[in-house]
Protein backbone atom coordinates (compact mmCIF):
# COMPACT_ATOMS: atom_id res chain seq x y z
CA UNK A 1 0.00 0.00 0.00
CA UNK A 2 1.12 3.51 -0.74
CA UNK A 3 2.54 5.56 2.07
CA UNK A 4 2.92 9.21 1.22
CA UNK A 5 3.04 11.85 3.85
CA UNK A 6 0.52 14.48 3.02
CA UNK A 7 0.37 17.79 4.74
CA UNK A 8 -2.83 19.54 5.56
CA UNK A 9 -3.74 22.23 3.10
CA UNK A 10 -4.68 25.71 4.20
CA UNK A 11 -2.15 28.46 4.72
CA UNK A 12 -1.45 30.61 1.70
CA UNK A 13 1.38 32.92 2.74
CA UNK A 14 4.06 30.45 3.49
CA UNK A 15 7.59 30.17 2.13
CA UNK A 16 6.96 26.47 1.60
CA UNK A 17 4.01 27.08 -0.66
CA UNK A 18 3.99 26.05 -4.27
CA UNK A 19 2.17 28.06 -6.88
CA UNK A 20 0.35 26.37 -9.70
CA UNK A 21 -2.55 26.92 -12.06
CA UNK A 22 -5.71 24.86 -11.90
CA UNK A 23 -8.00 25.36 -14.88
CA UNK A 24 -6.27 28.66 -15.53
CA UNK A 25 -6.50 30.22 -12.08
CA UNK A 26 -3.40 30.61 -10.00
CA UNK A 27 -3.45 28.95 -6.60
CA UNK A 28 -0.91 28.47 -3.80
CA UNK A 29 -0.80 25.45 -1.54
CA UNK A 30 1.73 24.05 0.95
CA UNK A 31 4.36 21.79 -0.53
CA UNK A 32 3.25 18.17 -0.56
CA UNK A 33 -0.44 18.92 -1.08
CA UNK A 34 -2.02 16.70 -3.70
CA UNK A 35 -3.59 18.18 -6.81
CA UNK A 36 -6.94 16.88 -5.56
CA UNK A 37 -6.62 18.76 -2.28
CA UNK A 38 -5.25 21.86 -3.96
CA UNK A 39 -8.26 21.86 -6.27
CA UNK A 40 -10.72 21.28 -3.43
CA UNK A 41 -9.19 24.10 -1.39
CA UNK A 42 -9.87 26.35 -4.31
CA UNK A 43 -13.38 25.21 -5.02
CA UNK A 44 -12.62 22.88 -7.93
CA UNK A 45 -14.19 19.47 -7.57
CA UNK A 46 -12.60 16.42 -9.17
CA UNK A 47 -14.57 13.16 -9.19
CA UNK A 48 -13.07 10.36 -7.07
CA UNK A 49 -13.87 6.81 -6.04
CA UNK A 50 -10.97 5.10 -4.30
CA UNK A 51 -9.77 8.26 -2.54
CA UNK A 52 -11.17 9.09 0.87
CA UNK A 53 -9.87 11.76 3.18
CA UNK A 54 -7.91 10.58 6.16
CA UNK A 55 -6.41 7.51 4.50
CA UNK A 56 -3.33 7.19 2.31
CA UNK A 57 -4.28 7.67 -1.34
CA UNK A 58 -4.40 4.58 -3.55
CA UNK A 59 -4.52 5.85 -7.12
CA UNK A 60 -6.36 2.78 -8.34
CA UNK A 61 -9.77 3.74 -9.71
CA UNK A 62 -8.36 6.37 -12.13
CA UNK A 63 -11.48 8.51 -12.01
CA UNK A 64 -9.56 11.54 -10.73
CA UNK A 65 -7.14 11.71 -13.68
CA UNK A 66 -6.16 15.21 -14.76
CA UNK A 67 -4.05 16.71 -17.54
CA UNK A 68 -0.76 18.42 -16.74
CA UNK A 69 0.67 20.71 -19.39
CA UNK A 70 3.97 19.72 -20.94
CA UNK A 71 3.26 16.01 -20.91
CA UNK A 72 0.71 13.82 -22.63
CA UNK A 73 0.58 11.56 -19.59
CA UNK A 74 -2.48 11.74 -17.36
CA UNK A 75 -1.99 11.90 -13.60
CA UNK A 76 -4.27 10.82 -10.77
CA UNK A 77 -5.06 13.96 -8.77
CA UNK A 78 -5.38 12.01 -5.52
CA UNK A 79 -1.74 10.90 -5.41
CA UNK A 80 0.15 13.48 -7.45
CA UNK A 81 1.67 16.29 -5.40
CA UNK A 82 1.11 19.83 -6.67
CA UNK A 83 4.39 21.21 -7.98
CA UNK A 84 5.66 24.72 -8.58
CA UNK A 85 4.58 26.08 -11.97
CA UNK A 86 2.33 23.12 -12.78
CA UNK A 87 -0.62 23.82 -15.06
CA UNK A 88 -3.46 21.43 -14.34
CA UNK A 89 -6.63 20.90 -16.35
CA UNK A 90 -9.34 19.02 -14.50
CA UNK A 91 -11.99 19.05 -17.19
CA UNK A 92 -11.79 18.45 -20.92
CA UNK A 93 -13.69 16.38 -23.46
CA UNK A 94 -10.92 13.77 -23.33
CA UNK A 95 -10.99 13.50 -19.54
CA UNK A 96 -14.77 13.34 -19.56
CA UNK A 97 -14.68 10.51 -22.09
CA UNK A 98 -12.01 8.59 -20.15
CA UNK A 99 -13.85 9.03 -16.84
CA UNK A 100 -16.97 7.73 -18.51
CA UNK A 101 -14.99 4.71 -19.66
CA UNK A 102 -13.58 4.12 -16.17
CA UNK A 103 -17.14 4.02 -14.86
CA UNK A 104 -18.34 1.76 -17.66
CA UNK A 105 -15.40 -0.56 -17.10
CA UNK A 106 -16.23 -0.82 -13.40
CA UNK A 107 -19.90 -1.41 -14.15
CA UNK A 108 -19.02 -4.17 -16.60
CA UNK A 109 -16.49 -5.84 -14.31
CA UNK A 110 -18.85 -7.44 -11.79
CA UNK A 111 -22.56 -7.65 -11.13
CA UNK A 112 -23.98 -4.21 -10.62
CA UNK A 113 -27.79 -4.17 -10.69
CA UNK A 114 -28.79 -0.98 -8.93
CA UNK A 115 -32.43 -1.92 -8.47
CA UNK A 116 -31.60 -4.83 -6.19
CA UNK A 117 -28.66 -3.26 -4.39
CA UNK A 118 -28.66 -2.17 -0.76
CA UNK A 119 -26.80 0.96 -1.77
CA UNK A 120 -29.21 2.09 -4.45
CA UNK A 121 -29.24 5.90 -4.44
CA UNK A 122 -26.47 5.96 -1.82
CA UNK A 123 -23.75 4.63 -4.07
CA UNK A 124 -20.77 6.63 -5.25
CA UNK A 125 -20.37 4.53 -8.38
CA UNK A 126 -23.99 5.11 -9.33
CA UNK A 127 -23.78 8.83 -8.54
CA UNK A 128 -20.63 9.25 -10.61
CA UNK A 129 -22.17 7.31 -13.48
CA UNK A 130 -25.22 9.57 -13.38
CA UNK A 131 -23.07 12.69 -13.26
CA UNK A 132 -21.12 11.52 -16.28
CA UNK A 133 -24.12 10.60 -18.37
CA UNK A 134 -23.28 6.90 -18.45
CA UNK A 135 -26.40 5.44 -20.03
CA UNK A 136 -24.95 2.21 -21.36
CA UNK A 137 -21.87 0.02 -21.06
CA UNK A 138 -19.63 -0.25 -24.11
CA UNK A 139 -18.55 -3.83 -23.39
CA UNK A 140 -20.43 -7.01 -22.93
CA UNK A 141 -20.97 -7.19 -19.19
CA UNK A 142 -19.30 -9.84 -17.13
CA UNK A 143 -21.87 -11.16 -14.70
CA UNK A 144 -19.52 -12.24 -11.95
CA UNK A 145 -20.05 -15.07 -9.52
CA UNK A 146 -17.88 -13.91 -6.63
CA UNK A 147 -18.64 -15.11 -3.14
CA UNK A 148 -20.96 -13.47 -0.63
CA UNK A 149 -20.04 -13.81 3.03
CA UNK A 150 -22.63 -13.22 5.73
CA UNK A 151 -21.00 -15.34 8.42
CA UNK A 152 -20.25 -12.30 10.57
CA UNK A 153 -22.76 -11.30 13.21
CA UNK A 154 -23.92 -8.28 11.23
CA UNK A 155 -21.32 -7.33 8.57
CA UNK A 156 -21.91 -8.67 5.07
CA UNK A 157 -19.68 -8.57 2.02
CA UNK A 158 -21.02 -9.14 -1.48
CA UNK A 159 -17.92 -9.26 -3.64
CA UNK A 160 -20.00 -8.98 -6.80
CA UNK A 161 -20.50 -5.32 -5.96
CA UNK A 162 -16.91 -4.63 -4.93
CA UNK A 163 -14.94 -2.18 -7.09
CA UNK A 164 -11.63 -3.01 -5.34
CA UNK A 165 -11.04 0.53 -4.17
CA UNK A 166 -9.38 -0.84 -0.98
CA UNK A 167 -10.98 1.83 1.20
CA UNK A 168 -12.14 -0.88 3.62
CA UNK A 169 -8.66 -2.40 3.75
CA UNK A 170 -7.02 0.95 4.39
CA UNK A 171 -9.46 2.06 7.06
CA UNK A 172 -9.13 -1.31 8.81
CA UNK A 173 -5.34 -1.06 8.76
CA UNK A 174 -4.69 2.64 9.18
CA UNK A 175 -7.51 3.78 11.48
CA UNK A 176 -8.74 0.69 13.31
CA UNK A 177 -5.30 -0.93 13.34
CA UNK A 178 -6.76 -4.40 12.94
CA UNK A 179 -5.63 -5.24 9.39
CA UNK A 180 -8.30 -7.89 9.14
CA UNK A 181 -8.93 -7.10 5.51
CA UNK A 182 -6.51 -7.43 2.63
CA UNK A 183 -6.36 -8.43 -1.02
CA UNK A 184 -5.74 -11.88 -2.38
CA UNK A 185 -4.71 -12.96 -5.87
CA UNK A 186 -4.30 -10.60 -8.78
CA UNK A 187 -5.98 -9.55 -12.02
CA UNK A 188 -9.60 -10.72 -12.43
CA UNK A 189 -9.35 -12.86 -9.31
CA UNK A 190 -8.34 -10.01 -7.00
CA UNK A 191 -10.63 -9.99 -3.99
CA UNK A 192 -11.01 -8.62 -0.50
CA UNK A 193 -10.38 -11.28 2.12
CA UNK A 194 -10.51 -11.52 5.90
CA UNK A 195 -7.48 -12.71 7.88
CA UNK A 196 -6.02 -15.77 6.14
CA UNK A 197 -8.90 -15.89 3.68
CA UNK A 198 -11.34 -17.08 6.33
CA UNK A 199 -15.02 -16.52 6.64
CA UNK A 200 -15.65 -13.18 8.26
CA UNK A 201 -17.34 -14.88 11.20
CA UNK A 202 -14.10 -16.74 11.92
CA UNK A 203 -11.76 -13.80 11.41
CA UNK A 204 -10.41 -13.37 14.92
CA UNK A 205 -8.72 -10.03 14.30
CA UNK A 206 -11.97 -8.27 13.31
CA UNK A 207 -13.12 -5.91 16.04
CA UNK A 208 -16.56 -5.45 14.43
CA UNK A 209 -15.96 -1.70 14.37
CA UNK A 210 -18.06 -1.20 11.20
CA UNK A 211 -15.67 1.32 9.66
CA UNK A 212 -15.31 -0.76 6.51
CA UNK A 213 -19.06 -0.57 5.92
CA UNK A 214 -19.01 3.15 6.58
CA UNK A 215 -16.41 3.92 3.93
CA UNK A 216 -17.38 1.40 1.24
CA UNK A 217 -18.44 3.55 -1.72
CA UNK A 218 -20.81 0.94 -3.07
CA UNK A 219 -23.04 -1.75 -1.63
CA UNK A 220 -20.31 -4.34 -1.21
CA UNK A 221 -19.89 -4.16 2.55
CA UNK A 222 -23.04 -3.39 4.48
CA UNK A 223 -24.68 -3.97 7.82
CA UNK A 224 -27.51 -6.43 7.95
CA UNK A 225 -30.91 -4.88 8.60
CA UNK A 226 -29.57 -1.37 8.80
CA UNK A 227 -30.57 1.37 6.42
CA UNK A 228 -27.43 2.07 4.41
CA UNK A 229 -28.09 5.78 4.61
CA UNK A 230 -27.22 5.58 8.32
CA UNK A 231 -24.29 3.28 7.84
CA UNK A 232 -22.36 5.32 5.31
CA UNK A 233 -20.01 7.94 6.71
CA UNK A 234 -17.50 9.33 4.26
CA UNK A 235 -15.91 11.59 6.84
CA UNK A 236 -15.14 9.02 9.49
CA UNK A 237 -11.53 8.44 8.53
CA UNK A 238 -10.75 12.14 8.26
CA UNK A 239 -12.54 12.87 11.51
CA UNK A 240 -10.75 10.18 13.47
CA UNK A 241 -7.32 10.88 12.07
CA UNK A 242 -7.70 14.59 12.78
CA UNK A 243 -8.82 13.94 16.35
CA UNK A 244 -5.93 11.62 16.93
CA UNK A 245 -3.42 14.08 15.56
CA UNK A 246 -4.77 16.73 17.91
CA UNK A 247 -4.72 14.52 20.96
CA UNK A 248 -1.11 13.54 20.34
Amino acid sequence: MLHVTLQQGGASINPNNVRLRINGSEVAVPEGTTILKAAALNGVEIPTLCEIEGLTPYGGCRLCIVEVSGTSKLFPACTTPAAQGMEVTTQSPKLYEYRKMVLQTLLAERTHICAVCVANEHCELQANANNHGVDHVMYERNWSCESIDSSHEFLVIDRNRCILCTRCIRVCDQIEGAHTLDLKFRSKSTNVIMDQDQNWGQAMSCTSCRKCAKVCPVGAIYIENENIEFTKDRDIAAFLSKRRRRSR
Binding site: G60, V102, E109
Partner: peptide, 22 residues
Protein backbone atom coordinates in the same frame (compact mmCIF):
# COMPACT_ATOMS: atom_id res chain seq x y z
CA UNK B 1 -1.52 -9.40 -19.66
CA UNK B 2 -4.98 -10.19 -18.28
CA UNK B 3 -3.41 -12.88 -16.11
CA UNK B 4 -0.51 -10.71 -15.03
CA UNK B 5 -2.40 -7.54 -14.10
CA UNK B 6 -1.80 -6.77 -10.45
CA UNK B 7 -5.42 -5.79 -9.89
CA UNK B 8 -4.85 -2.24 -8.71
CA UNK B 9 -6.22 0.01 -11.41
CA UNK B 10 -9.51 -0.14 -13.26
CA UNK B 11 -8.43 0.01 -16.94
CA UNK B 12 -5.92 -2.82 -16.73
CA UNK B 13 -7.68 -5.08 -14.22
CA UNK B 14 -11.21 -4.69 -15.55
CA UNK B 15 -10.64 -3.39 -19.09
CA UNK B 16 -8.18 -5.98 -20.45
CA UNK B 17 -10.51 -8.92 -19.70
CA UNK B 18 -13.25 -7.21 -21.72
CA UNK B 19 -10.87 -6.92 -24.67
CA UNK B 20 -10.02 -10.59 -24.31
CA UNK B 21 -13.71 -11.47 -24.48
CA UNK B 22 -14.01 -9.55 -27.73
Amino acid sequence: CVDESCGRCTPCRAGLPRMLEV
